[in-house]
Design a protein around this nucleic acid. Structure first.
Lengths: 111, 111
DNA sequence: TCAATGGTGAAGTGATTGCTTGACTATCGG
DNA sequence: CCGATAGTCAAGCAATCACTTCACCATTGA
């Protein structure tokens, strides 16, 4: 059975910030150290670290210390989980739309 | 050409709150009035209204006033847009994984 | 061993969030 | 026109967010 995924609240909140999405977009290509993740952003290392902590505590990334470098990697199953929420909603929307269309047709028949 | 979608920042932030996700989950089944959307939640109508305003300004829902009732409906293309971000990341993750595996195999060959 | 490199932690600040209360407006049914 | 129904607006407040600064610790490489 699947390990339970972290709650969507945190995942969506983590992804709501462009800097954090950028970090995820980088990590999707493979692991990276704190410093490398900081490079592209015009903010202090400290701020970057705090964003990474948000991602970590939301369960989106994991990290590991290698020597004096901390390496981050993505936890793809979490993206998968968030994606599933959208898929569910879209499926229900589609289904409700079909049902409504059906009802409208029957209505027309009777009228 | 596609009408440009609202920025992901707002969409994800809007979906980060369980009450707002619940509202979206309701609206997926069809339009609903303010009052109906408030029913399930243990908070004042005022609070619900503020959540709906967050969803509206993020572009997730639209509303229309019909008599003394305000009716909300989902804007499904926005969910679609957010979903696409996940799909993109997952595709890149997959691709990077394949590339890494490939590199590892070549490495082994040479070694 | 010591300086450079790479990362941590804690405190402080202004802005934003998620609520509440309470006064108010608009529409419908009679 | 009157009362009930449905929604709206604005203050106010505690908690959280997105930073900054600055002091600090841990590894590495000469």
């Amino acid at each position: 059975m699947a390990t339970s995924l972290p709650p969507l609240d945190g995942v969506f909140a983590a992804l709501a910030h462009p800097a954090r999405r950028a970090m995820v977009e980088r990590l999707v290509r493979g692991e990276a150290a704190t410093g490398e993740l900081a490079e592209r952003h015009e903010m202090t290392l400290s701020a970057v670290l705090q964003h990474l902590e948000v991602l970590r505590s939301a369960g989106v990334v994991a990290s590991e210390k290698r020597g004096r470098v901390r390496v981050f990697r993505l936890r793809p199953e979490v993206l998968e989980g968030a994606n599933r929420w959208f898929a569910d909603q879209q499926a229900r929307f589609w289904k409700a739309g079909l049902a409504a269309m059906d009802a409208a047709l029957k209505e027309k028949d009777r009228g």
